[in-house]
């Protein structure tokens, strides 16, 4: 579009800059605060430029020197817990959704539509809504304080199933028929045709689901009492309430920056697929 309206252009840029500032400023604050000693915050004013304590802060948080995190485990260990949780949730959700979407789209079985609608209805039941009954189930199964307990209740996913269903429906039926004539049974068709075609969608979903898993807060908070299973996101909140009076902002912000890194890396590494999977359809 070619326009020549300088005021409108200026206004647009202003809005964009404002938007970026709203998002960018807190990140800036976090990055800056992570480089100061705790004494820098006594005045109650956040510093706006970098200090010299950056490496030192990261080392202390990473190794949990002097129990700065207020728990017995290190940030590195909690990052590992978060990573496992995010990976298992993302991979588990994708696997289950692929299979259930495959069943719903390509197989004729009794109550197929009912099954679809039941899956669809669970969209209305995110973890937060069903958290108490789910806790009860997990507790009775003895899965408190375990990776299984952290991940399994979050794996079933209507959103991903629905997304794959829509994608499968867009695959021309003649492709399925050609594969049947070529002698591909249900398993071969899934492995040789459907899976390779879904690669972009899988990658795009992986990004979304990894971040979803990584950011889980309420659920791990509820079912873990053993510090060995704490996740990095949980501990940030604990830090804010733990210290009496003096909140250790430098430690909190260092932990925050650490916690932001894996999602950022995943997004950067997979952004090509991410965009492709959401907009492009290869047929």
């Amino acid at each position: 579009m070619i326009e020549n309206r300088p005021w409108l252009t200026a206004f647009r840029h202003l809005m964009l800059i404002f938007g970026i500032a709203v998002i960018g400023f807190p990140i800036w604050i976090a990055l800056v605060a992570a480089t100061h000693p705790s004494s820098a915050f006594f005045s109650g004013v956040m510093p706006l430029w970098f200090g010299e304590q950056g490496l030192n802060n990261f080392e202390r948080v990473w190794n949990n020197d002097d129990r700065v995190l207020g728990v017995t485990v290190s940030a590195s260990w909690m990052m590992w817990n978060s990573f496992i949780m995010a990976m298992v949730i993302a991979i588990g959700k994708i696997t289950i959704s692929l299979l259930s979407a495959y069943a719903i789209v390509y197989f004729r079985f009794p109550f197929r539509r009912t099954c679809f609608w039941m899956i669809f209805l669970t969209l209305m039941l995110p973890v937060e809504v069903r958290i108490l009954p789910t806790y009860e189930v997990v507790a009775r199964l003895g899965m408190l304080n375990s990776y299984a307990g952290l991940t399994i209740p979050l794996i079933a996913s209507a959103t991903a199933t629905f997304l794959f269903r829509q994608f499968f429906l867009s695959i021309p039926s003649s492709l399925v028929e050609a594969a049947r004539i070529d002698g591909a049974g249900p398993f071969k068709f899934f492995k040789d045709i459907l899976l390779p075609l879904s690669v972009n969608n899988i990658a795009a979903l992986f990004v979304i689901l990894f971040i979803y898993g990584w950011n889980q807060y309420l659920w791990p908070l509820l079912i873990t009492t053993d510090e060995d299973y704490y996740t990095i996101v949980m501990v940030i909140k604990r830090l804010m309430t733990a210290g009496e009076g003096n909140v250790p902002w430098n430690i909190i912000m260092t932990t925050t920056v650490l916690a932001m890194l894996p999602p950022v890396i995943v997004v950067i590494l997979m952004q090509k697929f991410f965009v492709k999977g959401l907009i492009e359809q290869e047929k």
């Binding site: 003649s174 492709l175 591909a184 040789d192």
Partner: peptide, 16 residues
């Protein structure tokens, strides 16, 4: 279809 020993050419080609 695979057991009938036939081959089919589709309108939209249906290539993988």
């Amino acid at each position: 279809p695979a057991e009938r020993d036939i081959a089919m050419v589709f309108q939209n080609y249906a290539l993988y």
